[in-house]
């Protein structure tokens, strides 16, 4: 099982990624909508569908890989066209959920994240 971490906002994520530089680890990042505290579900319905599918496949990741869950904010924060994740040159996030292998340009978007076979394909690659 991969090492799992959770971040909120770009700055947290960036500083962690910087700390991993040069480690040659496979890094997978799930960008997803914030969850509410009551029932742990997100305001983003697609994220709720994808979440269990992705977590079910996490056991496919090797010991030395990293799995990062990154919350992009509440709905108004995400819908803002100037959202920091949308504007970041390396991330250029277009939609959530987005599951990507960092630096490898391998990306699954929206309903693709809820397709078990595609998630497995990404994790096994």
């Amino acid at each position: 099982m991969a090492k799992q971490s959770v971040f909120r906002g770009l700055q947290q994520l960036r500083s962690y990624l910087t700390s991993l530089e040069g480690s040659n680890k496979s890094i997978f990042i799930l960008f997803t909508g914030d969850k509410n505290e009551q029932d742990g579900s997100s305001w983003c319905p697609d994220c709720n569908v994808a979440d269990p599918v992705i977590h079910k496949s996490l056991n496919l990741l090797s010991e030395d890989s990293e799995f990062i869950t990154c919350y992009v904010g509440d709905r108004p924060t995400w819908k803002n066209p100037q959202n920091e994740f949308r504007m970041d040159k390396d991330i250029q996030l277009k939609c959530i959920p987005t599951l990507m292998q960092w630096k490898k340009n391998k990306v699954l978007r929206e309903e693709q994240c809820a397709d078990e076979s595609l998630v497995e394909m990404l994790f096994e690659n």
Binding site: N105, L108, S117, L118, M121
Partner: peptide, 14 residues
């Protein structure tokens, strides 16, 4: 980049 293309082709076929 090529790796991402390989991956995308497989996603497209799916």
């Amino acid at each position: 980049y090529i790796g991402s293309l390989n991956f995308n082709y497989r996603v497209q076929l799916r």
